[in-house]
Design a protein around this nucleic acid. Structure first.
Lengths: 212, 212
DNA sequence: ATCCGATGACATCGGTTGATGACATCCCTC
DNA sequence: GAGGGATGTCATCAACCGATGTCATCGGAT
């Protein structure tokens, strides 16, 4: 994992011929050599990976700059500081996809695969880690809450299950625990398990948050 | 690393016949001014709380000393450093109770109540948080592993369930997620729920790690 | 009463981190 | 081609942390 190739590599090159990637949702990479937008993008991407790997505190701005191949001073210039950069990564996660209902198998698969590839976002750690109620924590948590708890609570409410909120929080917490444990390195077999293999087990587990 | 054993001269107990009551944790604040054993005890207690609240990194030796009412320098003297103090707290947790089988309702209740009162130990965070494989992480994880995963795996193996190890890790991860989420402050209703109220829900959830 | 080890408070060191400002370089506009 | 703003690089600062050395003080043994 982590490969992401990113690393340092000044690989990229103004070479205009580089285009061709249909995948890119954006315009073909502008050939500009000095590009603040690109620097910002690289910083966010590196920060997203590092925050997910080590958490907020244990990640240094120098590491982010190194992985992004960008001078750490630009973090202050473009975001205002390490904290604002973190918030930017959280907002990025947030805008990604519509709220997913964890009990729907197809959406659970999507989420699981995505989290396996890209690792859990910073918000997962914030949900589980105690800490002072800083702006950082608050933003991360509200993201995770709207993303996972609310859809579940709405489903339970519609099904007229008792304690829908509590059950939704329980399922979300269990899910977060599993996701984090997979990438923590503490549970070998859980980490090595293929998403397709893990899916039915996890689905059964989460379904049990709803009364039989 | 570093000094390690060097600093720790008087490894074990001066045992000057201090109050024999090992059980009674609530001393009436003995007016003794110089008592190494008591200082160690106070440091471990404060460290246990702080490590559980904020994790290893975000806890400073000065905070530990302040809460314990003891000079932070004594951490180095009595334990060899912050790391060894952490390991001491983990070992303290470890010796507490026999391995519990999370699927047995009575044991789950005991564990849940205990964790509700005293908060999750430092090891729970270590299980879920990524990090370099330092000695600290390793010790915490092996503790949690022997404590929660192995009993479950043995049960599943005895029941001839497929993938016993994977299922055991899954259940343990989910349980850790719920426990940590309760004390994280991110999930209000989950944190406010009474253990007796939460118990059946959690039991159903964990039971689902076993195939129907 | 005296001596000596045990204990704890204080000062400080080396290292790291986040942040900031000065300076150099590049690109676009005119 | 020159000017000016934008962009990137570098050096450095202040704050914090963990660790360690030093020294005053206490308490029991002699």
């Amino acid at each position: 994992m982590t490969a992401a190739g990113a690393a340092t590599g000044p690989s990229e090159d103004p070479s205009d011929g580089s285009s061709g990637g249909t995948e890119g949702r954006t315009e073909p990479a502008p050939p500009r050599r000095r590009d603040a937008a690109r620097s910002r993008e690289l910083l966010i991407q590196a920060a997203l990976e590092l925050f997910a790997e080590r958490g907020f505190d244990r990640t240094t701005t120098r590491e982010i700059g190194e992985r992004a191949g960008v001078d750490p001073a630009l973090i202050a210039r473009y975001f205002g500081g390490k904290t604002q950069l973190y918030l930017a990564t959280v907002r990025l996660e947030l805008g990604a996809e519509p709220p997913a209902d964890l009990l729907e198998e197809e959406r659970l698969r999507t989420l699981l695969v995505r989290l396996t590839q890209r690792g859990p976002g910073p918000s997962f750690q914030a949900a589980v880690l105690p800490g002072d109620n800083t702006e950082v924590q608050q933003a991360s948590r509200s993201y995770l809450y709207e993303r996972m708890v609310h859809p579940l609570r709405d489903r339970f409410t519609a099904e007229q299950v008792d304690r829908p909120q509590l059950r939704a929080e329980l399922a979300a917490a269990a899910f977060a625990g599993v996701i984090l444990a997979r990438s923590s390195g503490a549970f070998a077999e859980l980490a090595a398990a293929d998403p397709e293999e893990l899916l039915p087990l996890l689905h059964d587990l989460l379904t049990a948050s709803r009364p039989t």
